[in-house]
Structure formats: structure tokens, C-alpha cells
Design a protein around this nucleic acid. Structure first.
Lengths: 207, 207, 207, 207
DNA sequence: TAGTAAGCGAGACGGTACGTCGAGTCTTAGA
DNA sequence: TCTAAGACTCGACGTACCGTCTCGCTTACTA
């Protein structure tokens, strides 16, 4: 009786080669012209090997791209403003890379009609960014830069709003307006949001 | 000797039928499963007629979707806050419709590697939205809700920033976070931005 | 009240230009790649004009080629043998020309499934050749080289047989065996047939 | 390291199914309306499978038709005359079948401008018939019905001539004159040729 | 140390859609 | 009514990928 794995194990190098080949192909030919056969050929692997590991093109591309977002991190630069500005610029730089830019938008587009894919994107990509917002808020509260939230519900709503505003603005500027996220723009975005947040919390100050 | 147009003129009904068929197909089968043959059949037109008028799928879809954005308008509700909030909710509602949602993202994705397509999107879709921001700012200045910009350069930069923030946030919430743009969220987004803008212009108040 | 033609008369030059263009196109691109649009363009004429005069490609090509066979003629060289040999060589030379070669076979092939086309070929091409055989036989009888036929039925049967043998052999050698109809071959074919015909009529001689 | 064949082998059933489907389609719709898609559908095979094995329609049809000519054979009926007459009638019967008739002529027509196709026809169809003539002559010489040829060159020339005459006459009668190759016609053709051959070889007899 | 089950490459398979081309028809303006 | 021009519908073309399916090896765990 068997309970463990039997047979030849899957080649671990293959996974890495395939994901790398996928990213390379994305940069060179773009999402819509990326073919499984091409990826397989670039990876020096048979098409069968791809399909043994991923259900299809979409899933393969999401996995290939997800790892790129791991490098985003919240530094501790002393002030909330500096911390946020840094993340904005990191994110802008990431979306400036063709493989991230192309893949992210295409996968989102594809996801609008595929609940399963949507779930995969949410878990492998989006949630990681959201943690940056949560961590930033917590650190700012510890520093006394932001008042503690009135309640857990309000805190969650604020987190989501800030997340959508920051991520959305960066994505929109990069992919739709096609303008660079330079130091000046990052600074002005950060100021707009933090001013908005702070002034709202201290309405009397502006009266 | 001829100097005028010769030959049978292109059927004007065909254009309308094709664009309508494209939108219908987008809703029913989604972007990635939309085929030129299917669109032609729905429109009661030969495939060649499509290719005589559009270079390919992407261009056809952009044109088919562009008209949807014509319906966005800046109402005059008496206050800047109410005006902005209205546009935010209109835009959210628009992106809630499958044909807009699907097509917009997919086309943007495709555009990341096609300068010509990018130009088409910029001119037929993006610029129309930007006019909403410009008009809103001008009206607010007339009402005295916002100070006149320090100079034309600063005004343009501000317009672009606000545009990226508003459009980006709405798009991100709708397509990535997959949450609805309801009245509450629209209100909070509007407050965040307007507070940020106003407080920045009167820095002494927040000090 | 009108009883004659009204409106603009058909251009007579167009007919000649179209037939010439058809022959030229046949030589250059062959039957299966010959297109109506191409013929129209070569003739400096609109496609409509072609379709107003011929029902389709096949009919046009038959008419264009038929005229080539008009040049075949039975000379009077003094002996039946010389006369026949001359016709064989004329026919061989005709089939050596690409437009005749290509068109003849293709049209025959097409005709195997189109009774109407078959009739057109029979009347415009085949019957003209048959008259050569009939004329040759009559002249030979006048010269006393061949005995008068036993009866009209036998004469018709003999004519058909000789026609199929001569025409068939020349066509087969040219188009299937792809060998030239040179003087030697024409002489040997003529001798075979005339010897056969003469010896049959004088069976006692071979006993 | 591999030295043998790799990959999935081609299905041998597919070949047979495709060729049979081609013959069936030829009979039903004729050459000019025969489409690769239709053949594929009839064979229960994908279009790509056809193109993987044959460069195009012409080559496919030649191969599909070639096997029909395999059934022609030279019987031993005791006399040269009877043997030849049998072959003539077999050939006539073969050309009476629509798939042979249509395909043969059409392919020959196409071949007039395609050297490669011409070669294929020569090797897969024509040469097989020529062997019938050679065998008939050899057998007749063994029986003493024909004198041995004066030399190898003359023998080859005679073989070619007889081949072109017999095949050409049968083809011409069937496809151009559109008359049946019945027993009477076959007999008269055979007599014409054999009389001509014999009388030529014994010129003194006829003097 | 010998089986054996899964992995592997290669490439053929049935499909679907592509974008193009030609056929034959129709619609305009002008001769 | 003819003409040239060119848009129209239709249908087949030959190609490209899809995702699946044999093949004949190769490899590493398990009996």
C-alpha cells in the first residue's frame, strides 16, 4: 500500500525556467500574443509540462507576475509622509517595468469575466499591497502622527479608501495617462492624501 | 474625367449595426471570447466589411465603447462637493456595466504594447473625462470655493493629479477591489480630495 | 414606342480587349489563378462589364481560346499523307502554346461536371476540328487514295474514330507525355493511321 | 539520447480515410467545388491533418485517384488483339467513373503550369499505364504475333507512339467527344492500330 | 536491485478563429 | 442604358494556437 508520492518527481528547475520564460515573453510580445508553445520553447520544456502544472495561460501569467510585487516594502524613514512617498515611488517604478505593466492590466481585464481568476489575483497580488497600508497606519499611530481610529469598522473603511486612492492613482497615471511617477508627483499625491486625512480628523483646525 | 467620390458608398447603417453588435457581444461572451466572425454575424454583415473599416478587434472595441463615456456630465448642484460626488457616482455606475468594465481594462492592457492604440484611447476616451475636471475647477473658482491657481502650470499639474486620483480610485475600487461605488464611498472619496486640496491652499489653517 | 436598342451601346473595343486580356492572363498565371478582377484590370474595364457579357469565368475562357483553333486548316499538298501530317503538326504547334494548352485542358476538366459548358466547347471548338477530318476524307476519295465508304453510317463512324485517334494522340503526347510533336512523330502517327485504314479496306492484301 | 522517431506517430487510418473522402467528394461535388474543409469533415479529421500530409488540393487528388489506375491489367486472352481490346475497354470503363474522369483532366490541366505536380502525375499514374504497353508487346513477340523490334531505340519510340495513340484516343473519346467506349469502338480502334503496326512491319505484303 | 509509476520531449490530433482573397451582385455618379 | 469604381455578401483559403493525446524514453522511490 502506498501513501506517499511515487514515480519520477517533477523537475524543480522547470518551474523556475517556465516562470522566467513567461516574464520574458510578456516583455517581448505582450500578453495577447503570448503563446503556450512559445513559453515552452523558451523554457526548453514540452508544452505538456506546462499544462501539468498550470490550468492555462491566465493562471501561469498571474503566478509569473505575482512574485514581482513581493519586493514592495514599507521602509521606516521617520515620518508617515516619507514612508508613504517611498511606497508610492516603489510602486510607480514597478509599474514602469513592461512585464509588470502588461501583465497586471491584462490579467485584471481577463479577470472581469472569470471569478476563479479574480480570486487568485486578490490573494496573490492585491492583499499583499493592502498590508502595506495597514502597517503604515499602525506605525503612524504609534508615532502619534495619526489619531487612533474611532472604531475597527471605520479603520477598515479608511484603509480600503486609502488603498484604492493610492494604488488607483499610481496605476492610472502609469497605465492610462502614461506619465511617469516622479519624485514631484509622488510628493504631491502624498501631500494631498495625508492633508485630506489629517484635516478631516481635525475639522476644527480648518474652521 | 472624375473629380468626386466614385463607387458605391459605404453603408452608414453598417457602422452603427457593427458597433451595437460589438457591445452586445462584449456583454454576452466577454472580451477574450469575442470574435470578429461573431460580431459580423450579429450585425448581419460580412467579415470583410468589418476589416474594411477597422484594422482589428482592439480598434473596433475602443470605438464601440468610447460612446459610453459620452454620457458622463458635470451637473450644477450648487456646491463643488456635490458636483464632484455626482461625477464619481456616474463614473462608478458606468464601470459597473459589463461592457464598459470588460472593454476598458482589456483595451488598456492591449494598449500597453501598441502606441497607435494608446493614442486612440487617449483621444477618444481619456480626454473627455479630463474636461470634466477642468470644468469643475473653473466653476468652483467662479463660485469662490477654490482660489484661482497660482499660475497656468500649477493649474495643469493639479488638474492631472486630481484626474488621476479620482479616475484611478474609482477604477481601482471597481475593477481591482471589486467593491461598489456607493453613495457613502463616493462621499468619503470626495471629502478626502476636496479637504486635501483646500487645506493645502490654506496651509496656515492646519498648522 | 421603341423597338430598337436604346441607351448607350456596348463598347465594341471592350470585347476584344477582354478576350486578349484573358489570353494574356492565362499564359501568365494559369487557369486556376486567373481571376475576373485581374482580367478586368488588364483590359482596363470594370468587373461589371465582364459579367454583362459572359455568365462566368469558364465561358469567358472558352470564348477567349476558341478563336485560336480557327487558324487550323487543311492544306492541299497533293497526297493524303502530306495533308494529314500537316494538320497533325499544326495541332501540335497550337497545343505547344501555353494559353491553348492550359485553357483547353482546364476547360475540359471543368466541363466534366457542367453540361452547358460541355455544349459550348463542343460547338465552339470540337466541331471545327471534325470538319478537317471530313474534308480530308472527301479530298482523298476524289484523288482515289481511299475507296468510297460502304455507307453513310460506316463513314460517320470512321470519321469519329479517326478524329478521336488523331486529336487524342496529339493531345496526349503534348499534355500528358509532355513530349513535342516533331516532324518524325507526326510522320509516324500519320503512317500508322493511314496504313491501318488502307490495309483494313483491302483485307486480302495482308492475308 | 534519442536516435529513433519521437513524438506521436501519424495515424495510418487517417490517410486511408482522407483519400476515400476525397474520392467520395470528387464524385459528389466535382473538382472545382471540392474544398479541403469538406474533405476533412467527411474523413472525420481536422483540416490541419490534411495540410500536414499534402501540400494542397492538387497533390491530394492525384494521390487519391492514382490507386484507381492500379486495377488496370493486361489479361492473357490468347491473341494480342484480344489482349489490347480488353485493356482498351478497361480503360474506357475507368474513365467512365466520375471520380476518375473529373480528377484526371483537372489535375492534368493544373499540371500544365506546375512542374512538380507534372512529375507526380507522371510517376504515380502515367508510368503504370506504359508498362501495360511494354508487357503487351513482349508477350506478342513471344507468341510470334509481332516481329522483334529492329533495335531498342525503335522499340521505345514505338511503345511511346502506341501508348499515346491508345490512351489518347480513349481519353479523347470519353472526355471530349463524350461518347462511350463500347465493344464495337474498342474493336475498331484495336484493329486500326494493330493493322497499322503489322502492315508497316511487312510492307511487301501490302504492295 | 528490480519494478513501476510518474515525469519527460516530441509532435500529431480535433478544433476554433484568424485575416485574406476571389466570386458574383449592387449602388452610386457620370457619359 | 452603358460605363468605372468600389462596397457588398458569401464562402473557402491556408495558418496559428489551443488544449489533449499518444509515443518511447528517463528517473527515483518502494518492494
Amino acid at each position: 500500500m502506498h501513501q506517499g508520492r511515487t514515480g519520477r518527481p517533477r523537475s524543480p528547475e522547470a518551474d523556475a525556467a517556465i516562470l522566467a520564460a513567461t516574464r520574458q515573453a510578456l516583455v517581448e510580445v505582450g500578453w495577447s500574443r503570448l503563446t503556450m508553445g512559445d513559453v515552452a520553447a523558451r523554457a526548453g520544456v514540452a508544452k505538456t509540462t506546462l499544462y501539468r502544472r498550470w490550468p492555462g495561460r491566465n493562471e501561469l501569467v498571474v503566478d509569473a507576475v505575482a512574485v514581482l510585487f513581493d519586493e514592495l516594502e514599507l521602509p521606516d524613514l521617520g515620518t508617515l509622509s516619507a514612508d508613504v512617498e517611498s511606497v508610492v515611488r516603489q510602486f510607480g517604478a514597478l509599474l514602469d517595468r513592461p512585464e509588470a505593466k502588461t501583465a497586471l492590466m491584462a490579467v485584471i481585464a481577463e479577470a472581469t469575466r472569470d471569478e476563479e481568476l479574480r480570486r487568485r489575483i486578490r490573494t496573490t497580488i492585491v492583499d499583499r499591497q493592502k498590508r502595506l497600508v495597514t502597517a503604515g497606519r499602525r506605525r503612524a499611530e504609534e508615532r502619534g502622527e495619526l489619531p487612533p481610529p474611532p472604531g475597527p469598522e471605520a479603520a477598515a473603511r479608511d484603509t480600503d479608501l486609502v488603498f484604492d486612492v493610492v494604488a488607483g492613482a499610481v496605476v492610472h497615471r502609469t497605465l492610462v495617462s502614461a506619465e511617469p511617477v516622479d519624485a514631484d508627483w509622488a510628493h504631491r499625491l502624498t501631500q494631498l492624501i495625508l492633508t485630506g486625512l489629517t484635516a478631516q480628523r481635525a475639522p476644527g483646525a480648518g474652521a
